[in-house]
């Protein structure tokens, strides 16, 4: 077991089996390629995507079907290759992959979810990619709740 410092959860222990590995980290954070997903039981279904190399980097995320129950995942061939997924078909959420939408919380503004570029995690091997959807109509700022974000 290894230890890491987290943004919201103090110091935690994790094993290599917990690590989600990006070929290249999320856009803007390409050098952060190793993350773990933290799921406090009382905060279901919220997922904290915590960087292992940068303690202060932790994205809040929700399973994408929680944000949009009809979400259609369309990954380009390059993204399927990056997540080591079969190239001949689209992956199925919940069977092949876990699909998360990163949330943005800003003081005084509605909380939004990035449906344009979900984080896709291969359930077999934990390879991950932030994939920009080939489907043109999803927003990078899908309003999740109209209420102003609960920010400190």
């Amino acid at each position: 077991m290894s230890k890491c410092l987290t943004k919201y959860h103090g110091e935690i222990e994790y094993s290599e089996n917990d690590v989600v590995q990006f070929e290249r980290g999320p856009f803007g954070f390409e050098s952060n390629s190793r993350f773990i997903m933290l799921v406090p039981p009382t905060m279901t279904p919220l997922v904290f995507l915590q960087s292992l190399s940068t303690p202060g980097l932790c994205f809040l995320a929700l399973p994408i079907l929680v944000v949009d129950r009809n979400y259609k995942l369309t990954l380009g061939t390059e993204d399927r290759r990056a997540a080591v997924l079969p190239v001949e078909r689209q992956p199925v959420i919940g069977e092949d992959v876990l699909c998360l939408a990163i949330l943005t919380l800003q003081q005084g503004l509605p909380t939004t979810a990035n449906l344009m570029a979900p984080v896709v995690v291969n359930l077999d091997n934990r390879k991950a990619v932030q994939a920009i959807s080939s489907e043109g109509s999803y927003s990078h700022r899908h309003i999740f709740t109209q209420a102003a974000a609960a920010c400190s």
Partner: peptide, 28 residues
């Protein structure tokens, strides 16, 4: 879209949220 997502990730990474208040929003 790459630039849009890059910017959005940066803002998302800066999010500092209040756990009890956010959970009550989620429940709502």
């Amino acid at each position: 879209e790459v630039e849009l997502v890059r910017q959005e990730n940066l803002v998302a990474a800066l999010s500092m949220y209040d756990p009890p208040a956010f959970m009550s929003q989620l429940r709502q």
